[in-house]
């Protein structure tokens, strides 16, 4: 099932998967510590809180976080999904479905902060759901990536695939 050419890239891909796992884990801790996982905390984070002496988030402050994430998150998703698709020759429908959920959660997660602050504070649960959905689907992608790196014993090559770990295929699929 796994493309045999993946074997040559196992070390850099394993290093990448390890670092992405760290990024996701630290992202979860930062979300929990700075924003929180219930609607009240999320609203207080974006709209400010008199009790906590916290001012509302400014547009500049929101953009300071959103802009790097608008580069980093799509780049991370593009590379991770590309590697999984390359490794497994993923079937179109399940791959697209999971990828769509991940992209949707990423977009909702980044956009929800602006919506809560400037449009409708009651969207706070969407922010939490998008973050949890993003983390869960990224965990699934990382597990798939790790599965692609496991030893290939007992696996059959993909039908019609002519490449090996050391040589390119004789004909492109």
């Amino acid at each position: 099932m796994v493309d045999p050419r993946m074997a040559r890239f196992s070390l850099p891909v394993a290093a990448f998967a390890t670092m992405v796992a760290l990024v996701m884990a630290t992202g979860a801790v930062l979300f929990a510590r700075k924003i929180g996982f219930d609607g009240g905390h999320v609203r207080a984070f974006f709209l400010g809180s008199e009790a906590g002496f916290a001012p509302p988030r400014s547009l500049a402050g929101l953009l300071e976080v959103a802009v790097p994430h608008l580069l980093a998150v799509p780049l991370l998703l593009l590379v991770t999904l590309h590697l999984v698709a390359f490794a497994f020759g993923a079937r179109r429908r399940p791959f697209s479905l999971l990828a769509g959920i991940t992209w949707g959660c990423a977009a909702a997660g980044i956009g929800a902060g602006f919506a809560i602050r400037f449009a409708w504070p009651w969207l706070a649960p969407i922010k939490v759901a998008a973050f949890v959905g993003f983390q869960a689907t990224m965990l699934a992608w990382l597990l798939l990536l790790v599965a692609a790196l496991l030893p290939a014993s007992g696996r059959d090559p993909r039908p019609g695939f002519t490449g090996t770990a050391d040589a390119p295929p004789r004909a492109a699929r």
């Binding site: 070390l11 850099p12 990448f16 390890t18 670092m19 760290l22 990024v23 630290t26 510590r33």
Partner: peptide, 22 residues
């Protein structure tokens, strides 16, 4: 936590790209 979050991202992409080129 913020430094590790950003550092792991940079290390991950550098290791993947440079490692794959090698």
């Amino acid at each position: 936590w913020e430094e590790v979050h950003q550092g792991a991202f940079l290390y991950g992409f550098l290791l993947l790209t440079v490692g794959s080129l090698l």
